[in-house]
Design a protein around this nucleic acid. Sequence first.
DNA 1: GACGGTAAGTTATATATACAAGTTTAAGGC
DNA 2: GCCTTAAACTTGTATATATAACTTACCGTC
Lengths: 259, 259
Amino acid sequence: MSDSAPTLPSEDAGSTPLYQQVKDYVRRSILTGDWPVDHRIPSESELVRLSGASRMTVHRALRELKDDGWLRRVQGQGTFVADRRTRLDLLEIRNIADVIRDRGTYGCEVVLHERSLPTADIAQELETEPGAHQFHSRLVHRLDGAPFQLEDRWVNPAAAPDYLGVDLTRQTPNEYLMRAAPLSEVEHRLEAVLPGPVEQELLGIDRHQPCLLLHRRTWSGGRVASRAWLTHPGDRFYLATRFAHDAGLPRSPKPEDMP
Amino acid sequence: MSDSAPTLPSEDAGSTPLYQQVKDYVRRSILTGDWPVDHRIPSESELVRLSGASRMTVHRALRELKDDGWLRRVQGQGTFVADRRTRLDLLEIRNIADVIRDRGTYGCEVVLHERSLPTADIAQELETEPGAHQFHSRLVHRLDGAPFQLEDRWVNPAAAPDYLGVDLTRQTPNEYLMRAAPLSEVEHRLEAVLPGPVEQELLGIDRHQPCLLLHRRTWSGGRVASRAWLTHPGDRFYLATRFAHDAGLPRSPKPEDMP
DNA sequence: GACGGTAAGTTATATATACAAGTTTAAGGC
DNA sequence: GCCTTAAACTTGTATATATAACTTACCGTC
């Protein structure tokens, strides 16, 4: 920490804790794709050199990222970018194109992509003025040609002013928004619904096919950035997760020690 | 650490890390009800005295429990048992009776509670011999008299041998199993379905009412303890979560520093 | 009594150090 | 060539220490 202390990112480095800055650096490197899955990231001692923090601080940052599923660490070998595909799609904000490409070939049809006046309900969800125009898009994501997900999205122009200029056949809304308006908060709601006739037509399903509706709102910089309705035919899609309580509770309860 | 080092629980104290033992002690105290919600637990320095570990080790244990939602810590005041009711029902394994009591009065109807021969599918899910009998129960949980959730559950007798003796009107299956077979692992699956006629009858819904089906398997001590199908009419139930990425990603991307 | 300052107690962060345990690599001996 | 051994490097745990920030309680002064 003598001469070339390689000061960390972000101008507010004074306020945010050091371990947090290291976490942010690693996460950003993963999200931008610089460090792909299974890539071996710098070792603790290297990060100590790069960041100027102590090993314990770097270690804490990496351990927390491991606990959150970003990294995979193995003693004696190193630290690697974890494969997050098996984790809950629901909470992950995964790019739908990636999800589909894991299972087959991806296709996409842009039904709608315009500036439009939202209903009062949607304005309220976006936390914007009722009379203000917003961006509205509607896509059908396809797996091997068959409809897989219907995405109906409203975007706050204050958060992503260039949204209408994006070619949604080359970049999914999620993909674009993740870069344009890095998310700070997410809200999910999940329902079982029977879609309306228009949605049934777009998804190519019959009248009584139940669907999973995932309602998602994302925040960026204190504002609602986007509100999406993601509809999946119920018989083709499911969400799965499986986790282990760390070591769980002790098998043989001995309640005596430690008063 | 001189004279009366108050050694920690569990005979295998030699193998499990110290911070884990402290975590287990705190978690056990919460789960047994010794420390109710909002109870102020011993301070770090007290736990140092009780456990014999250093403050950093105790601090790590408490910090991780906080991150996992077990504790609430406020600087200058102390550490308190957190109220977990607001967290995601899905991943929480919340007791359905508590969920319902948050919204009204709870009722319960035991449709079925017996020893029975499972189908091949269910035996496979339970990871038991195809010809072996298992415990089977089926309940309708009611909110203000109206059906709220249909619970169809198979229980592995090896994990909970006394299951048939439990009065399910006084204790929900989940409530009992949480104590009888402390869980070590959980698997969830979520679908949108149209229930069969029997289930429609029990839930009091019409033929085309879509439902959320939550499929849950729990492990205890290396075995599958239980497999439950939890069906909710789609228009009355939703799952919600909202979380903040800790400090999120930096607002102004400055990719230059830290090569 | 009201106000302000101080002290004690609490959690949060950060560092330096040490040892343990696992893996890989390289050197050496046969 | 092949095996063994040692060294170097990695992550995991544990401790001691220091500082900061925050809260509550107490005491003195006005």
